[in-house]
Write a protein that binds this DNA or RNA. Structure first.
Lengths: 257, 257
DNA sequence: GATTTTCATTTGTCAGACATTTAAAAGTCT
DNA sequence: AGACTTTTAAATGTCTGACAAATGAAAATC
């Protein structure tokens, strides 16, 4: 592993990249122990704090885990689906919030992906997924449910749908995408009427999945996309009027207390 | 923001989480400057190296960038599509390599996603994407092309296809997924005959997109998925036989499913 | 007024030290 | 001998203090 001290890139970044490449290329196996910080500092000819910063970068990406004590150290981490999804959600959420993406664009992408696994879900769904969908539909009918809880239930419903495809890679990709859209969906205020409309569509969707009707499921998802966009538009129109009247609030700086 | 020194989580991890939450929640705007390391150390009541480790974690996730010099410091980073895709590729690649996922599962997920944007690509594709597809098909016909270069061209072709949908969110998700599969695809040795078969399918696919025939595009993708799986199976079967002859067969051979 | 120099600020890095955790190894008792 | 306890060494987590390098603003100079 070569490190160039004259590069403008920080040493810790270069070292992190070297180790990351070793992990991705498979030169380091899962659960394999990396040399101790002191040894790495020797090998790369840098100080221990610099090595530590590099290791923290890798830890932030869930590439390694560290363990204290004798025979502890940094180990190549087994990346679980849950870890991977968390990373995906963080990245996607930020991407959506920072890039001036219209609700329609995000919504379109989300439903396009969801339609992709609808046929597979219709074919392979298990009683488990149908039970979750039924339970969430029931919850969505409760009138005293808050908007946030309604949204959370919506996410759970769609995750069950996705999981019905019985493909963990697809579940990882899709659930990340849907979770990332939750902040956008939370901006919507769900009236009783719009909730009833959504519940009805969810019911249709579940029926289509239950009866293994792929075409109907896809069609229902198209309908749901239209309704979601329409709801968002009406809310945003209202907000846009409100914004032009009120002033934008300045944000509080970081404080330790 | 409260930091609990008695928690088993490392201080730097807690601090990173606190700042990350502030960024995601929008309390810190894009390009806003964070307090200096010394100020943060004061606020959180920890030493500067600890703060630095926390900041490196955030830098690894592309959440902040740092700038040296007077009026430098850490700034909330604008997460570009390119950065986000890089993160996604890293995560997805590791997920695939570490979780004993069968080729079929990954392949199925990839083509399901790709089929999702085929109709949109058929409807909206621009001359730009068609030109790229044509160029890549031409390249794939060159006999002296290495397997790796063929794979790279394949990725470029499919990226043009998904870019045809004119939805950047979809492009981000899909191109990440396809790039992450590249190491798996690189395991395949492409014979002249299989290359011809793939080129033919690509030609059909481009024709379908060109003529805005969504159904045909989807159908062709189904065909390509089948061919890809078949190719992978034959390669893996050959590898498995080679291994059982060469070495002790006490460990289960690689299975294609 | 334009250019150069100085300078304060901030990150990047290093060195050494101590605290804490942890599991292996040694010791002790039954 | 076997089970339990204590010791101990190794490793990460953290702190203090310091210096180097970069960088933009302000002061000085032409």
């Amino acid at each position: 592993m070569k490190i160039d001290p004259d590069s403008n890139a920080a040493l810790s970044a270069q070292i992190a990249k070297a180790i990351r490449d070793a992990i991705i290329s498979g030169a380091l196996d899962v659960d394999e122990r990396l040399p101790s910080e002191a040894e790495l500092a020797d090998q790369f000819d840098v100080s221990r704090p610099t090595i530590r910063e590099a290791l923290k970068r890798l830890a932030a990406q869930s590439l390694i885990r560290t363990q204290r004590g004798a025979f502890g150290g940094a180990f190549v981490r087994h990346l679980s689906y849950a870890d991977a999804r968390e990373q995906l959600v963080t990245t996607s959420t930020l991407l959506l919030s920072m890039n001036d993406i219209s609700f329609d664009t995000a919504c379109e992408a989300r439903f396009a992906l969801e339609r992709a696994c609808a046929p597979m879900a219709a074919e392979r769904r298990q009683p488990e997924q149908l039970a979750i969908m039924a339970a969430e539909i029931a919850r969505q009918g409760e009138p005293e449910l808050s908007d946030e809880a309604f949204c959370a239930s919506d996410v759970a419903f769609h995750r069950a749908l996705i999981d019905g495809a019985q493909n963990p890679v697809l579940s990882y990709q899709l659930s990340g995408s849907i979770e990332a859209m939750q902040p956008l969906m939370n901006m919507i205020t769900y009236t009783a009427r719009s909730r009833a409309e959504i519940v009805e569509i969810h019911t249709d969707l579940m029926a289509a999945i239950d009866s293994r009707n792929a075409a109907s499921a896809a069609e229902t998802l198209v309908q749901l996309e239209k309704v979601t966009k329409r709801l968002a538009h009406s809310v945003m129109a209202a907000k846009s009027i409100a914004r032009s009247v009120a002033k934008s609030p300045d944000h509080a700086p970081i404080s330790a207390d």
